[in-house]
């Protein structure tokens, strides 16, 4: 039985090692391939602490295996009484002092990095963005720019962007693993952090503080674009006129249905600060519907007709008159046409 167990364990170890080597997770989601300043700081510390700790683990395992090989009770020596050792000052000092040194090796860069990432001075001429966490979506307000948007956060590459975050209801936590570590979003205290992305792309963001039934569906994206594209996007967003009529008839009908069904009391289009529900200014450009569904018209119709089936516990359910699938299709047509900018998740390399 022993041999079989041994082989099984070897197999298990090899298997998990292979898994580790082959996959670090999905690009733009995993923390293991950092693409931003915060994530890189974290990764450095992860590596330092892992290496130091693996060293400790190796020492422990070495002694452990040696003990098990050498000091099992031997046949024919059942009555052997080992020497009763009380202790050993030298040894005990060694295994007190060495861990202290190892911990200092981890502690110094930890403290340095903690203070480094704690810069919350804000930017004088750069971007300051107010982030609001809501059950179960994110709102972004570009300070001084009159731009309000939800779910997709557009930022320029290589720029330090300051976020001030607050929650409108329960605790949330803002996490974009590839770019930066997380920060909680609280209802009473405003939290500040900065992010800096190294590469253009669309990065997954997640809520990491239990916030209700749809906690696991409270995804968002950070869309990192070049500075020029970002400037373009800002210009386009500012030029949005919420009163513009859509081109085709279906969408026009959709717009009036949108207004009749009370959607406007929660959702703003344009720079109005309303944030009972997500801002829909650039809804047609969203990388996902409701944070999780692919941006197709069918999905949008499903969402409008029965949001509860997609995000349990969301605040939209029951707050508007019942909408038939046909009507929803028209509203969807209207919403999908809200594409104020050429700069979209696709152009950023979704």
């Amino acid at each position: 039985m022993k041999g079989w167990m041994g082989r099984f364990r070897a197999f298990f170890l090899l298997g998990s090692l292979a898994l580790v080597l082959s996959a670090c997770g999905k690009d733009n989601l995993t923390a293991l391939v950092p693409k931003g300043y915060g994530a890189e700081s974290s990764m450095d510390l992860i590596i330092i602490s892992t290496v130091v700790m693996l060293f400790v683990f190796a020492v422990v395992m070495l002694i452990y295996v040696a003990v098990l090989l050498r000091y099992r009770k031997k046949k024919g020596q059942e009555d052997f009484i080992p020497k009763q050792v009380e202790g050993n000052k030298t040894l005990e000092t060694i295994w007190t002092v060495i861990p202290i040194i190892l911990l200092i090796i981890i502690a110094v860069p930890t403290v340095t990095a903690t203070f480094d990432l704690a810069d919350n001075s804000g930017s004088k001429d750069g971007l300051n963005i107010q982030v609001t966490g809501n059950q179960y979506w994110w709102h972004f307000n570009y300070e001084g720019q009159e731009i309000q948007t939800s779910q997709d956060l557009y930022v320029p590459v290589g720029e330090k962007i300051y976020l001030s975050m607050k929650s409108s209801d329960v605790h949330h936590s803002f996490w974009v693993p590839s770019i930066s570590g997380k920060m909680d979003v609280l209802p009473e205290n405003e939290n500040k952090m900065y992010i800096e992305a190294y590469e253009e792309g669309v990065y997954w963001g997640k809520c990491t503080e239990l916030c209700g039934p749809s906690h696991s569906l409270m995804d968002f994206k950070v869309i990192v674009v070049s500075q020029e594209e970002f400037d373009q996007w800002v210009k386009d967003m500012k030029n949005v006129n919420p009163d513009n009529q859509p081109q085709d008839a279906v969408a026009q009908e959709g717009k009036s249905l949108f207004q009749q069904n009370n959607c406007m009391s929660c959702h703003a289009i344009g720079s109005s600060p309303t944030q009972i529900g997500p801002n829909l200014t650039n809804f047609g450009d969203r990388s996902k519907i409701a944070g999780i569904l692919d941006p197709t018209k069918e999905n949008l119709v499903k969402w409008i007709v029965d949001p509860e089936s997609i995000k349990p516990g969301n605040k939209m359910t029951g707050n508007y008159p019942e909408v038939s699938e046909k009507e929803a299709g028209k509203i969807a047509e209207y919403l999908m046409q809200l594409k104020p900018s050429e700069v979209t998740p696709e152009s950023a390399g979704n």
Binding site: M43, L45, I46, I48, T110, G181, K182
Partner: peptide, 9 residues
């Protein structure tokens, strides 16, 4: 290790 914990937490 605080900053590493920003990822683990």
């Amino acid at each position: 290790s605080v900053v590493a914990d920003y990822q683990y937490h």
